[in-house]
Design a protein around this nucleic acid. Structure first.
Lengths: 245, 245
DNA sequence: CCAGAATGATGATTTGGGTTAGTGTCCCTT
DNA sequence: AAGGGACACTAACCCAAATCATCATTCTGG
């Protein structure tokens, strides 16, 4: 499809700036990650498979990807979304074998960064390593929030919560305009992320439209009533830790 | 009730040894964490509350605790169990405000370790910091596995999976004898961890007994047919990363 | 030592969400 | 231009798990 504008490491820089004040030198250091070749992959392809031992760190530049796990009989659970500016597998530093897969949900562009190169960048900017660790902790907090959602929230509450979360995350990387953002994934993906059947996800979406919470068409999601949506979702933004120190 | 034997840092050492070969010097370094006073707390009390900013690292020595999140209307989801040898909040190094609570499920004993003291110990043993990071990654992998369970597995599969996971984890810290281990928590806790109602959890437990998968009484869980249990749970141990490098 | 919680166990009934089985529409691809 | 996927959407029916209610123990705190 039409190549999206290549935002480079800009989304990442914006994201990390939500956690702590970064300066120009940090910005420059980050952009050093852009030197490698950019990789592209189409939707419905895997970036990495469970069991593999990736040797590179991947930085998503455009498009959406996800972490997912599947069962032998085909059931699949998306356990997290990767948005532009996210690293897919920072844990490659510690663990060797992936216990989950990483899939492209849309066509994606990403950098494959060699560990040495990555090391070099963070070694020179202690602030960056702190911000990156912070982001990893936030990812872990998002997982906990999803567990709460899937374990306790109803379908409507779950979906409402996810939309608010995506809104905040996309806003942090500059991908929301007002209360509208692009939601380039399918209803099937949303169902897999929320532990719901595609049929029921569609029903829930209709309900949200009927209730005047959102508008969704042509992959554009518009939050019509943020306050109400947050109330339905019982949304508390503390877990995103978007508060600079 | 009767105070359990104080195992000190032994469970932690055993646990970390599952990830990488540790030597006597590592063992000695870890035991330096035992110098502080030991804290005790009864079941149904919180060790830390969401919103707090803990200033110490807590190492659980005996008893079970959990990480949980709750909703304004009282619904509660346990997002992870802490077993003896687990650190409750290593992330205190990075984030400031807790986005979840930590509760004692049984009476517990734990050390409260000052960050400086902790730092001192790991600074002298690079192997330890690596093993601890590894364990954090494994915790994160367990969260993903739970997400898969709650999102996709049936009640029976979920519970079977949890029991196998607990068996492996308890075995790693020396708390399983053969295929039997102490399960000191209530059915209510199991329900909250699995996103099920207490009633249905009880029924599922009955079913597991009927099927000859487990025996459970007086807080002792005996896995009668591990192979079958793993099959029912579609259990794949890769996410525990119990493979030394 | 007693009253009131917890805790485990079951039956009866209800419901949120799953399953099955379609429809129509837009792409791609060849 | 035709055939085949994806994808969004819907209706009818079904079922796994929630709710509500009750009862017997066993803790446990005052």
């Amino acid at each position: 499809m039409a190549t999206m504008t290549d935002a480079g490491t800009e989304p990442l820089f914006r994201l990390l700036s939500r956690y702590m004040a970064l300066d120009h030198a940090d910005r420059v250091a980050l952009s050093a990650l852009e030197t490698g070749p950019i990789r592209r992959l189409n939707a419905r392809n895997d970036i990495a498979r469970e069991g593999e031992n990736p040797s590179v760190v991947r930085l998503l530049v455009s498009g959406w990807a996800c972490r997912y796990k599947d069962l032998p009989d085909g059931r699949r659970q998306i356990v997290g979304f990767f948005l532009p500016g996210d690293f897919c597998d920072l844990n490659v530093y510690i663990l060797q074998e992936l216990d989950h897969s990483i899939g492209a949900l849309t066509s994606v562009q990403f950098y494959e960064i060699q560990p040495e190169q990555f090391q070099e960048v963070i070694d020179q900017r202690p602030n960056l390593i702190r911000a990156l660790l912070w982001h990893e902790m936030v990812s872990s907090g998002i997982q906990r929030q999803w567990l709460l959602s899937i374990g306790q929230r109803s379908a409507l509450e779950r979906l409402a919560h996810l939309f608010v979360e995506l809104y905040y995350r996309l806003q942090a990387v500059g991908l929301a305009t007002g209360l509208t953002f692009e939601l380039p994934i399918t209803q099937n993906h949303l169902a897999e992320a929320n532990g719901l059947s595609p049929v029921h996800l569609n029903r829930t979406l209709q309900e949200m439209r009927r209730e005047g919470l959102i508008e969704l068409s042509d992959r554009q999601l518009k939050i019509v009533d943020l306050k109400h949506l947050k109330k339905v979702a019982m949304f508390n933004s503390n877990y995103l830790h978007f508060n600079r120190t």
